[in-house]
Amino acid sequence: MMGEATRGVDALQAKNKSVRPLIEARGLRYAYAAGGLDVIRDVSLDVPRGQLSALIGANGSGKSTLVRLLGGLVKPQHGEITFDGARLQTINARARATRIAYLPQTTSSVFPFTVREMVLMGRTPYTARFRFEQPHDLEVAHSALQAVDALHLIERSVMELSGGERQLVALARALAQEPECLLLDEPSAALDLKHRAGLVRHLRRLCDERGMTALVVTHDLLLLDPAFDYLFAMRDGTVAASGAPVHVLTDDVLASVYGDANIRARRLGGRTVVWSEL
């Protein structure tokens, strides 16, 4: 009897351990200039492992800065970030790039790189200096492009691509890093509804089929529920609310996050619809 109960607790602990958050941030504070305004003020959050999460909030609320902190691109002035149990700052940049892929907002290029060259750049962290990509890397690049249905673009120049295609190629480059975690900063900003939905579908599939963890900065409140597992809502450099989409996408939370009482959310046929009264 006793033994059974212990086993039960063990199993629970083991389960808890297996779902330990991939990224844990505690007490983050960050200002771009020393002594300047804190863009991030006392943020603590857990990015759930193997799930698709979104970071929402008004312009200037610190979303981009927060993903850059979580991706290790900038260092917090205060607080600590652990990635898979290890302090993020102790992981060197190249090793980090094999585990975390970060996609910046803009993905335009001045030089007409081919899509193949662009995606192969994702293999850099696996390639020693003065060495070049090997046939294996080409295979990885192929399957990365295939995963986002963009293999047909491989010979094209990135200059000729549409905004949506460029975003897919950037996502393929991130996948070519074979990361455990994707951090995407407004990947759908320049896309039409069809392409935005397509991108969310790709991300959903990556989480479901490959156990990828993804955190996406987005303004697409319409595409959050039920595609996303978890939401973080930011306001003035803090995480004002977090939880499942049904709990975050409510009139009260949205009004407080966006500082606008006109924003409404309603459950409708298994999804949450968000709109603004005009």
């Binding site: 940049a93 910046p104 750049m121 994702g122």
Partner: peptide, 23 residues
């Protein structure tokens, strides 16, 4: 020549280069 690999990534943009491990 040593920096060529970093410059290859910097030619796309700084953030991309940084996220791929370039200082």
């Amino acid at each position: 020549i040593w920096a060529a690999r970093d410059l290859h990534l910097l030619a796309v943009d700084e953030e991309t280069a940084a996220s791929l491990g370039v200082d």
